[in-house]
């Protein structure tokens, strides 16, 4: 047996144990406490502010290590490129808006930087974690388990399995689409080419970028997301019909 299998979370059985492990590992993404706890330990060796700042990348690094064996290197790198793009877009947009409209986003520069840094590493960890989480539960095994249940539960379970399959599909589409999107609209990520010194000119350029790029992204994501849905729906309708026929013949 491959020694790495021990670290592959999607192989953990039963499924509820897998679920609990995911929640425990993802806890730092939902709450501040693990970061504060780590920073308290680190502050014995470093400046407390620096300790808090490095606790965020440490947590992200731990989550990447957790996801890597299950995803495999290629998939992991794909997800990470999409995550970096998402995180960069978020922090660049945030810092731009904070500078352009200080009366809304008022905060001292240090606090704003720490907040954005936290958000940056949060997005970097959330993206691979959530895709690993969704892809670690198989709709097929849910459908197999449902065959032993009574009709009303079976029908509800089929809807749940379909929703899971759609979520998995959206995850795949989004990670691929983000990379294509970056190729097409690189301007926000390459600031030196946008003439950011001229504030008004930049605001217009940014709003235009935002309008075109976001509309394009949203439209493309809808088309690619919905493309396989009719086939998925057909498959589940056939399964549902078969279940109903089986129930009828048993009676």
């Amino acid at each position: 047996m491959n020694r790495l299998n021990f670290f592959k979370i999607h192989l953990v059985k039963p499924f509820w144990l897998r679920f609990i492990i995911f929640i425990i590992v993802g806890l730092p993404l939902f709450s501040n406490f693990p970061a504060l706890f780590i920073s308290q330990i680190l502050s014995k060796f470093f400046n407390p502010e620096f300790a808090l700042i490095i606790s965020y990348p440490l947590i992200s690094f731990f989550i990447w290590l957790f996801c890597l064996p299950s995803l495999g290197l290629n998939k992991f790198l794909d997800y990470m490129s999409a995550a970096f793009l998402m995180a960069l877009t978020t922090v660049i947009t945030s810092s731009l808006l904070q500078n352009l409209f200080p009366f809304i986003f008022m905060e001292n520069a240090y606090a704003a930087s720490v907040r954005l840094l936290r958000l940056y590493f949060n997005v970097l960890a959330v993206f691979p974690w959530s895709l690993t989480f969704i892809n670690s539960f198989s709709p097929d095994s849910i459908i197999n388990a449902l065959t032993q249940l009574r009709t009303p539960f079976r029908e509800a379970g089929l809807h749940f399995a379909l929703a899971l399959r759609v979520f998995q599909h959206v995850g795949t589409v989004v990670s691929k689409l983000l990379l294509i999107w970056k190729e097409r609209y690189p301007s926000l990520l390459v600031m030196r080419h946008t003439g950011e010194n001229k504030k008004l000119k930049f605001i217009f350029a940014w709003v235009r970028w935002l309008a075109y790029s976001v509309i394009d992204w949203v439209y493309a994501s809808i088309i690619l997301t919905f493309e396989p849905i009719p086939a998925m729906v057909n498959e589940f309708e056939i399964l549902s019909e078969r279940n109903k026929k089986n129930d009828f013949s048993e009676k």
């Binding site: 998402m86 978020t90 958000l119 949203v218 997301t225």
Partner: peptide, 18 residues
């Protein structure tokens, strides 16, 4: 599909309001 896309776009561009 729409719920998943809502979650993704909400996370994608987040500008904190301190």
């Amino acid at each position: 599909a729409l719920a998943a896309l809502t979650a993704v776009t909400t996370i994608m561009v987040r500008v904190p309001i301190p």
